[in-house]
Design a protein around this nucleic acid. Sequence first.
DNA 1: ACCGTGATTGAG
DNA 2: TCAATCACGGTT
Length: 167
Amino acid sequence: MFKNQKTLAVARNLIGKILVRRVGKRLIREIITETEAYVGPHDLACHSSRGRTKRNEPMYDEAGTIYVYFTYGMHWMLNIVTEETGFGAAVLIRATENFKGPGRLTKALKIDGSLNAKKLGKKSGLWIESEDNKANQAKKLIRTPRIGISYSGPIWSKKLYRFVLRD
DNA sequence: ACCGTGATTGAG
DNA sequence: TCAATCACGGTT
């Protein structure tokens, strides 16, 4: 699903799907309720817009790669890489049903830099359940501008690239 | 509205 | 080197 769709479509379609995290023997299953699309190097809010750096290197790997980075001295952000290898686009998972906010989500699911650049799947212990669920079939989406990216200027900061599942 | 917190970045 | 910034969250 990450390879064959545009980043915006991936962001939209991830809403309502189930994010699964293995921590020890336990599986945490969470319905994704909020995502944001970072659509490529032309998108001034996207990390790839300023070229390849050590931090954003995983964004240039194949679709389905996990891109986790640390910000504000405290928080890990979880992204899934999209589009063609070498392009530099991703979807930020901002929240699930029980964990609102990207920093709280990663904390709850024990997601940190050790997952960076790994692939979604059983091996890494983080994946998306392929089956749709009821919430996905009946999903009612709201689109808004992305959060916390005012630095990207008047055009990109206004794009409706954030998707939220209506409560 | 303000600030903690520390890695990352780009400028010098 | 170094200062500014930051895809946040908790508190005032």
